[in-house]
């Protein structure tokens, strides 16, 4: 479990980083952010990048900013930054609620928000947040930058729309309405493990009825996504056990579940049903 030899580049500016990345990308050169996913993969020699572009010293990437509409999260912002609310908006509390489910404390102190999005583990909590809230990923290379919408960004298990020479410079999350309600739930066998299924829900109430519902499911399919069927089951209804159960059922039947040696598709559906209902329940408590 010693990695193969590699060259580590430590750029100080974004331009420098992008230049190096452009040069080394063809030789499996990769960005090194928090290293909490990449380094274990290298230790197992599942990846043997010849070059690492370490972005931990790049100026400006550690910023979180908000322009009243969007919360922008730079590539060096760690999971732990969200232990406390980063913005006076329900989104701040949502991120705080979600962050504590990611791995363990030491990993949260190193691992980055954007690194999670770039790594795109199907069970990543931040990927679920990005998909559910329709985040925009800002990819940069030496030729410029392009925004990528969440629905186009996630492409499969650990696969994204990022080109190999592109750096995910920041992610932009829309601020929530001040009366937004949200809930999050995940199931795993041990605290801190990747979720076997997770759900984030978010909506507003108008005259006691649910409007603008968002139901995201992660960990159950190759990519996290919003489940339109579940959202339809909520839309215009008053929140309550029967409605929540109907939405959970809709989500459970809508997913095309991942299977593995221990986990059948049927079991994964059971979990989806449970986490969606529980996330909805949390939204009203």
């Amino acid at each position: 479990m010693k990695p193969a030899a590699f060259v580590r580049h430590v750029p100080r500016t974004l331009d420098e980083a992008l230049k190096i990345l452009a040069q080394v990308a063809p030789q499996d050169g990769r960005v090194l952010a928090g290293g909490q996913s990449l380094v274990p993969i290298m230790a197992f020699r599942l990846a043997k990048p010849a070059h690492l572009v370490d972005i931990n010293e790049v100026e400006g990437l550690d910023r979180i900013s908000n322009d009243g509409k969007l919360l922008s999260i730079g590539a060096r912002v760690r999971h732990a930054a969200f232990h406390k609310s980063v913005v006076e908006n329900p989104l701040g509390l949502l991120l705080t609620e979600v962050a504590r489910h990611i791995a363990h404390y030491p990993i949260r102190v190193r691992g980055t928000f954007c690194g999670s999005l770039a790594h795109a583990d199907p069970a990543s909590e931040w990927c679920l947040v990005a998909a559910t809230l329709d985040a925009t990923m800002v990819a940069k290379n030496t030729r410029g930058e392009r925004p990528i919408a969440a629905k186009d960004y996630f492409q499969g298990i650990m696969s994204t729309a990022l080109a190999e020479d592109e750096l995910l410079a920041e992610a932009r999350l829309p601020l929530l309405a001040s009366d937004a309600k949200f809930g999050f739930n995940e199931f795993n066998r041990r605290a801190g493990d990747f979720a076997m299924a997770a759900s984030l829900v978010c909506y507003r109430l108008q005259g006691g009825k649910i409007v603008e519902p968002r139901v995201g499911v992660g960990g159950a399919e190759p990519c996290p996504r919003r489940i339109a069927e579940a959202e339809a089951a909520l839309n215009g209804k008053a929140p309550g056990d029967a409605v929540f159960r109907a939405a959970a059922e809709a989500a459970a039947s809508a997913v095309e579940p991942l299977e593995d040696h221990q986990t059948t598709g049927e079991y994964r559906r059971d979990l989806v049903r449970a986490v969606v209902r529980r996330a909805l329940e949390q939204s009203i408590t």
Binding site: P40, F44, R189, R190, A191, G192, D193, F194
Partner: peptide, 12 residues
């Protein structure tokens, strides 16, 4: 790996 061979942690 310890991601697949699950040892109990303080939480379990």
């Amino acid at each position: 790996t310890f991601a697949d061979y699950l040892m109990p942690t303080a939480r379990e």
